[in-house]
Design a protein around this nucleic acid. Structure first.
Lengths: 132, 132
DNA sequence: CCGGATCCTATCTGATACTG
DNA sequence: CAGTATCAGATAGGATCCGG
């Protein structure tokens, strides 16, 4: 990002290409939740599964694989039997919690505003649709 | 939300219920991009369509409706013929740009780290899969 | 110019069953 | 315990045509 002059459009386009993959990850159904739980400390597979409640085994595996692939989460296998696999946030994963918490704060702060906007919109839309 | 004592788990669960809808919005394919473009000033429908390049008419309409429903974007119809419809960020929408830019900065800052992690992961995984 | 309606495909997700 | 494999349903997204 050391281009001396960069048009706003160029900056935005470049930003988007970089931001998109991150958004795809944090935008999925479980990633942020898992990152936030792991922010409180490492967990084993079934601890996560119990703690999340609603996630399928499959999605937990898939999401953890994705997070591991992106370098946000580390996976440590304890070669015992039965196996113990521990997941933890990497430094990169920890650094993500900041921005995500910022977004979370915004959401909590404005959720009332959003919900009332939705209600107003739905009411208006329902009124327009009533005649059909 | 007036429980006097709330366990960490409860707090997290409550936070999640509030954050999830927001994540669903900003996690989708186009919302953040549109918000960021509108942050630079109001646009008309086809201006957005041209500027985004790759979005289908359908998705632009759908995404704008969603943003409007959430109170992030305002839609103003100029009752001329042909009609002019102008989209702009609401105050709520403007307030979202802060956290989103924070996330964007994080993404830009760490994208190299992420990509190399992915390459390492893919290389390791490919090696493990080679023998099949 | 704006956008609704329809059709079709790709991807995501969950349920279930099976394995080291 | 910690996964993998497979199947079926839900959902997102694009292409296209039509209407105000």
């Amino acid at each position: 990002m050391h281009d001396t002059v960069m048009k706003e459009t160029g900056l935005r386009a470049a930003g988007c290409r970089n931001v998109s993959p991150v958004l795809n990850r944090i935008g999925d159904k479980w990633s942020v939740l898992i990152v936030m739980i792991l922010a409180a400390g490492p967990r084993r597979f079934n601890e996560l599964k119990r703690e999340i409640d609603g996630i399928s085994q499959r999605m937990l595996t898939l999401t953890l694989r994705g997070l591991e692939r992106d370098g946000l989460v580390s996976r440590t296998v304890d070669p015992t039997v039965p196996p113990r696999v521990t997941y933890a946030l990497t430094d990169l994963g920890v650094s993500l919690t900041g921005p995500v918490e910022a977004l979370g704060s915004w959401a909590i702060e404005h959720i009332g505003c959003i919900r009332s906007a939705q209600d107003r919109f739905d009411a208006a839309h329902e009124a327009a649709t009533r005649g059909q």
